[in-house]
Structure formats: structure tokens, C-alpha cells
Design a protein around this nucleic acid. Structure first.
Lengths: 144, 144
DNA sequence: GTCCATGCAAAGGCTTTGCATTATA
DNA sequence: TATAATGCAAAGCCTTTGCATGGAC
């Protein structure tokens, strides 16, 4: 899991430079269980670097997302995005009900929604199972 | 299902006035299977009313959402919201793994995501099953 | 006739971008 | 030293809001 890998190695693996700002932001994401808005991240970052700029936050988060270090969530009630460390161990699949082909879905739509549901139901959510099903591209064509 | 209920009755039930603009917008949502951005709705609406304004679109959609006529989706890749007729027949539950209590989740996090997955996988999605589980508020407290 | 809805224009809020400066490899 | 990252300010885009006008009940 990303959380336990050294920042230096993560940056190296992604081919991006290690900077003080990126280090701070990655630490914040690692420390935080829940998704954060850019502004919340900004506030936390300012506690560690008095001069870090909001545009650096956004630029860095976008790089993290493109490198799959982080994921971006858009909760329904919010009109701002939330960001979270990419929990890479979490996987879902979509299954073809005709030929049984399976493909992996690499982004879980429920992360972030769990958080939203927790707020609304007062449940503490431990996990979920999601199964999507339909017709794969080949079987879809055959049907027509 | 909302789709087959007369607009006039929907407005009456919600206690809002029937206007030409609201009628047009509700028809657009009823006709469309897929979620639309405010701008897409605006363009379609302009074909039916040359003078309808974007702010009316947003205002009306927000009213529709507050009345549960429509739902708002925030897909991860987009930074704008998408809107869709509320398919009220679709339900999920969250289950307490301690006392087995179940509560209904009234908004499905997968609607809209199916659409996104279809684009990325070329599947034609027929449906999905989602099960969330955790500890309800009472059992959560007992544990502590 | 009253109150709510609309159009228009302007403002608000989140996010991105251009450019000069600074820091990394 | 060359290249990439940052800070700052400004712009961009989506969405909301104030206000006068128009329309529904």
C-alpha cells in the first residue's frame, strides 16, 4: 500500500522531482483517512510551509492524480472536489452476462460515497461489495 | 415511475407552479436516458424556447432536485455537474454487521458511474448490485 | 391582484494558467 | 547548468444571486 512506501521512492517511481511542497502534500494525504477539499489541504499545508500557494496545491494534486497517487472525488452535495490517497488494494469488476468475461474497474465509485453515507446514516462503514454486469463489446455487437 | 406521470401532476404534487420553462425542462429530462450537463440541457431547451435563460435552467434544476424530481451527479472526470431524472425505483441498503439492522440508501452512487464505466470499458451495462456494510450507530457506540 | 418565476447582468467560488523566480537533479 | 516546480496574480469556467419585469393561480 502506498501509505507505507517512502515518499522519495514514490516520486522516483513516478518520475517527478521531490520537492518540499510535494512532500508535505503527500504526507497530508497519507495521514488523512478521509477525503479532503483542496482548501482543507491548503490549510494543513500552510501549517508546515508558511508560504505554500493554493495553485501549488491544485497543480500537485493534479499530478498526483495523473500518477495514480491520489484520487479525486466529487460528492453529490458538494460543488468542490475532494482528494484522497489512492487505496490501490481496492478493486471491482464488471462481468459480461453473456460470455462471462470480466474486466477490472480501476476506480471505485463508492470511496467517498461511503463517507457521505456515514454522515447521513450514522453508520460506521467497514466495506462494500459492488458488482456491475452487462454485455461486453463483442456480445453487445452480436446481439444487434 | 416519474417518467410516466403527467408533468402537471408532478408540479401539483410538489407544490410548484407549472410554467412553460419547467415543462420544457422536465420533458428534456424525461426524454433523456443519460445524464446531461446544465449546458446540454440549456442547448436542448433553447430549441424549444428561443429565450430561455441559463439561470432558469440552474434554478429549475435545483428546484427539481430539492423536490426529488431530478438527481445531480458529479462524475469524477468532469468538473461540472450532470443532471438526470430521478429513477425512484432503484434502491440500495446498508446493513449492520452486528445487529443486522438495514437502512435504505435513497441515492444510488452508481447511477452516472455506470455511464462513465460504459465509456471506458465498452460494456453495455444492464445493472449492478451494491451492498454496503458496517456498524449502525448503536452498535458502533457499544463497541467503544 | 398577489406572489412566484423568469431574464438579464453581475458577482461568487472553485480551479487553471502565464510568467518571472527559485529549486532540483 | 538545464529543466522542472513554485508563487503570485489574473483569468476561466460553472453556478448563484439581485432586481426589475412578466406570468400563473
Amino acid at each position: 500500500m502506498l501509505k507505507y512506501i517512502d515518499n522519495k521512492d514514490i516520486f522516483k517511481e513516478c518520475g517527478i522531482k521531490k520537492t518540499k511542497q510535494r512532500n508535505i502534500l503527500l504526507n497530508i494525504l497519507k495521514e488523512e483517512e478521509e477525503p479532503l477539499t483542496a482548501e482543507e489541504i491548503f490549510i494543513k499545508a500552510r501549517e508546515r510551509d508558511k508560504y505554500i500557494n493554493l495553485s501549488t496545491i491544485y497543480r500537485t494534486l493534479n499530478i498526483f492524480i495523473s500518477k495514480d497517487i491520489a484520487i479525486k472525488l466529487n460528492l453529490e452535495k458538494e460543488n468542490k472536489s475532494m482528494f484522497q490517497l489512492n487505496m490501490m488494494d481496492h478493486q471491482h469488476h464488471i462481468r459480461c452476462i453473456s460470455c462471462n468475461k470480466k474486466i477490472r474497474i480501476d476506480k471505485c465509485p463508492i470511496i467517498g460515497y461511503e463517507y457521505f453515507i456515514e454522515e447521513n446514516t450514522n453508520f460506521h462503514i467497514i466495506g462494500h461489495k459492488l458488482e456491475l454486469y452487462g454485455y461486453c463489446s463483442k456480445c453487445k455487437d452480436k446481439k444487434q
